[in-house]
Amino acid sequence: MSRRRLDFVLAVDSGGTGTRVGCFALDGRLLASATGPGGAHQHDDTAAANLTGTVAAALDGLDPAGARAFAAGVSGIARAGSNQGGLTADEARAFYPLPDLACPTVFVNDAVVAHRGALAGRAGVVVVAGTGSMVLAIDVDGREVESGQFQHYAGGARHVVFDAVHRLLTGPADPADAGLRARVEDHFGGPDLRTRLLALAESGYNDVKRRYGDLAPAVTALAGSSPVADRALRSLADATATGVLLLAPLTGVDPVPVGCVGSLAEDPAFRVRLGDALAGSRAELVPTQLGALGGAAFTALQLAGVRVDPAVLDRLRTGMLGA
């Protein structure tokens, strides 16, 4: 099959749950996209194949020689200045081989592209919460700092489920939690939860994390009617707000915009509770501008020497609807 010879950039957003890849023209138009399984090395044993396979699928029909830049935001990549560990940029290039691309490439932590996308390059704080989580600030001079550098970690989707399950197992029975209890028992295979969870613990660590995390949408959906679900979600929102408030004074802006990216962070039930936890502070939740894939595209375009002006941003926003 013949391939189109166009100038474009490649953008990747990859976490523990899934991988999204977009090919964007230099004016911001989306040319092609693909989705695949998660590419986070710490969450998935087939992470490298998942990410590179999704890149190949997005490139199908395009000549790789037209690629002008490649930017990937991947969970588990060490962030500049962080003490939290992860793959270095060089290790990431070796772990995720891209043999058909001769263009400049950059691998960064997925929170960095999430920040770029959520705030369209502005200073502020971003909450990334899905399979994993990070609270990241970028200041007016482009310096990055994460809440983990203050020994803080809020938690992601699976942590909401951990909390809810622990409360069900240890707290007094409340008829209002009957729906949640039934959903949890169904998810884990039966009413004898302790036995079921001990058996699950014999599985691989990544399988355990994924099994708990898969239940998070049900917990957040029931937070309006189940006291246990509400307390679990509110507890994580409070912990997340602590991370935001640790970082907000470092951004150099006032008020401080706070973006939310990720399956849990973007859930309305979580956002409401995070907003409650931030009430009265100078940190303000704002609508997400581009999302993480758009942030990766923003980064790739800049790497290719493209000025990302308002017209390009508008095309990126339009492209996010189809990616």
Rank of each mutant, 00 (worst) to 15 (best):
T105D: 05
A49H: 10
H41C: 11
G81E: 11
C23T: 06
A40H: 06
F8H: 13
G124L: 05
N109I: 09
F8K: 02
I77M: 13
T54A: 02
L62S: 05
A78F: 02
Y96D: 08
A32L: 02
V106T: 14
A67M: 03
D45F: 11
A34Y: 02
P97K: 08
F70P: 02
A69L: 04
G16T: 07
R116V: 00
A58R: 00
T52H: 14
H43R: 13
T17H: 12
F24T: 03
L62T: 04
A56F: 08
F70N: 08
R29P: 07
A123I: 10
A114V: 07
A25F: 00
D45K: 09
C103R: 04
A123T: 07
L101I: 14
A58T: 01
P64L: 04
F24I: 02
N109K: 10
N109F: 12
F8N: 00
G22T: 10
A32C: 05
G73I: 00
A48G: 13
G53S: 04
A11I: 04
T54C: 14
D13M: 13
G76N: 05
G124Q: 02
I77S: 05
N50I: 05
A49F: 01
G22C: 12
R20A: 15
F95L: 13
L98C: 11
A56N: 06
A11H: 02
T35M: 14
R93L: 14
A58G: 06
T52A: 11
A69D: 08
A78K: 04
G38W: 08
F8P: 01
D100N: 13
D100T: 15
T105R: 15
L87H: 06
A57V: 01
A49W: 01
V74D: 12
G22E: 08
D100I: 01
G36W: 07
A11M: 04
V12A: 12
Q42M: 12
A78S: 14
N50Q: 05
L101R: 13
A118D: 09
F70C: 12
A67K: 00
V74N: 02
T52G: 12
G53Y: 10
A57Q: 13
L101Y: 04
N50M: 02
A89F: 09
H115Y: 09
G81N: 11
G76K: 00
G81A: 08
R68S: 09
A120Q: 03
L87G: 07
D45P: 10
P99N: 13
A114H: 09
